[in-house]
Design a protein around this nucleic acid. Structure first.
Lengths: 358, 358
DNA sequence: ATGCTGGACGGTAACGTTTCCAAGTTTTAG
DNA sequence: CTAAAACTTGGAAACGTTACCGTCCAGCAT
């Protein structure tokens, strides 16, 4: 008779070099409670179809042994995806991404989902690799702040995908983003209302968001009946503060400098301010996205902001619904509004810039 | 004859409501390549002991089918922990934590490890729950920025643990941290050297780090032959900027305000500056931990800083070695140095504070 | 009594991988 | 030319869980 006896927490003769405490399994629990394996599983998963008395005995055994379900084994069963979501985004050091991550983590955690992070530093191919890695871990869904490039390869991944902050090409999926065009228009209109007619816009390289914000910029001009001076539309080679700083310097040292600058990204805003601080110039400045300490700088910074945390929360909620199969609607498109926060830098009149211009 | 024939990517008669693309398994690959299952596994894991010709055939099949190893199934095998690390820390919105996370992610990623994040908002019990969750996901190791409270329960987790930024009680484990006492001393000495004799210190509630920084503060005083005015040692009820702001206001409105303030945390520093800005006072200020825009504030902020990213990198490296079993040394204790970054706020002489004091 | 229904429970087959062992094949040595 | 050794390879067990399929028993209707 093949006696498949298994020692419960066997004491190893020689202490293993990896002091790996053998964690109890459902089988251990079953044996201890004097019930079958299936019964333990039923109890662990809600306990339907188990007599209360039996369930109690099982629960006691679970407590005594300190049993905890092995999520990996659980996820192996067909259909059962693991109870983890993946989040793929850029530099966590950017408060923008960090805020999204935090919010998503929070929502996922409330539903008992863990979040596996894939940080990708602006590398179109690295992103693909990271996503493949994540998918191979059987995550229940993907939240992606996509890089440029085709994301069609995601279609075969077999898991729901939610894009965050910007859409991706090649695949139809849910998307949660902010009203970039509206924000761009808001910022620009505000500057135009102050009487500015020469407004520069700084753009990070080829993000989707960049295009929309620029569109808002143009639209505001058109509405005001003004032409956009194309030499004031600055496409930066990189999306960091240094790049913006350099561009701002060049911009302000032109014979015909702008009287206002719209920095389309939080890091760009920083760069702009840095350059202006050194030059001692004071054009009006409006940034896109709020940032910490914006109100404490020598001239508090006016920004167009949205609820970034809500971006992360919405994405996580949507993804959880998709993963659970609760949500069968066609791909959704959630757009969060932007609001203007006036702090000072955006309210400087054109004259202020001119006054110091010489 | 039990013909366990399995269709390769069978076409479902009725399209399933969850459009789950059946992903190919090793068995599919084996069949396609005309080899055994074991051979495929060997090829996937480095291909030792497989003839090159056979390996090539397998690789072709893998490419054709777009096969990718199921990490979950892999992790199920005994001994094989999953190739993920867990990172448990506080508010990701705090650049301090975000920096650690980013660095750890980077190092882990280079070794093909994913990182599962558990963010815990200053909740002693929530941390425990989060850790249990993570352990049940069979992570290969834990990196924890521990909350107060006993962490003895980790001893039975069966996975290596590395503590980050501060040690935990109840368990002997690796720890990576900064030289808090040295940093505290450095900051204090710097202020003392400027001639300050009434220096206040603001402390976040009951962190380990708080105690060490305070110790450095006291030590510097003792070395200088000065008594610490205990009324200037301010234990805050919370670790946020608001709390520090309120405390600073009270401090400065005393009949005998300090001429210098040592803020022992980046958020505290922010609060201090906020209060001083409103009051129009100018005591010297030194903060612990650098932060973005510190150099752009009206008075650039002097701080004691360390390489936070290296904190995360070291932790990840150490944990990877432990997880691989490469590192069998007794628990390590890595301490990173602190350096003073002079920017202005810390170099104001006592007279400046007094001048405006009335 | 007997047959039936249905709930409670035990057992077992997967899930996809790794690892071990045995069998087969080639190479090397004697 | 044979024996042994080394290398390849296929097959099967096992990891811990869930889902399904029986079995068993109590209770009920006939």
């Amino acid at each position: 008779m093949p006696c498949r006896q298994k020692e419960v927490n066997p004491v190893p003769e020689t202490f293993p070099n990896t002091p790996e405490a053998a964690r109890p399994t459902m089988i251990d629990v079953a044996r201890r409670a004097g019930v079958g394996l299936g019964t333990v599983s039923r109890v662990v998963n809600g306990g339907h179809g188990v007599r209360e008395e039996t369930a109690q005995r099982v629960r006691t055994a679970i407590d005594q042994l300190g049993f905890q379900r092995n999520e990996v084994a659980r996820a192996l069963r067909p259909g059962k995806k693991s109870s983890s979501l993946a989040l793929v985004l850029g530099d966590l050091t950017n408060p923008f991404y960090a805020t999204i991550a935090k919010a998503a983590l929070e929502v996922a955690g409330q539903s008992g989902f863990a979040v596996v992070l894939g940080s990708v530093d602006e590398d179109p191919e690295g992103e693909k690799r990271a996503i493949r890695e994540l998918v191979s871990r059987q995550v229940a869904g993907l939240m992606i702040v996509p890089d440029q490039g085709d994301h069609a390869f995601l279609a075969g991944a077999g898991v729901p995908v939610v894009f965050v902050d910007r859409p991706a090409t090649g695949i139809e999926a849910d998307i949660v983003m902010v009203d970039n065009e509206g924000g761009g228009r808001l910022a620009t209109e505000h500057l135009l209302n102050q009487g500015h007619e020469r407004i520069a816009i700084l753009l990070a390289p080829s993000y989707y968001t960049t295009g929309r914000r620029l569109r808002g910029f143009r639209r505001a001009h058109r509405t005001a009946g003004l032409e956009v001076d194309e030499s004031l539309v600055v496409q930066l080679p990189e999306g960091n503060a240094e790049s913006a700083e350099k561009a701002t310097r060049e911009l302000m040292l032109r014979p015909d400098p702008p009287t206002a600058i719209f920095a389309s990204t939080n890091f760009l805003t920083e760069g702009v301010l840095r350059a202006l601080g050194e030059l001692g110039r004071e054009p009006a400045v409006v940034g896109f996205d709020d940032f910490r300490l914006a109100d404490m700088l020598p001239t508090p910074v006016t920004v167009v902001a949205s609820d970034i945390a809500e971006l992360g929360r919405s994405a996580a909620r949507l993804l959880l619904d998709r993963a659970a199969g609760t949500d069968r609607r066609p791909p959704q498109r959630i757009v969060l509004p932007c609001a203007l926060i006036q702090r000072g830098s955006g309210e400087r009149p054109p004259s202020a810039a001119k006054r110091k211009a010489r």
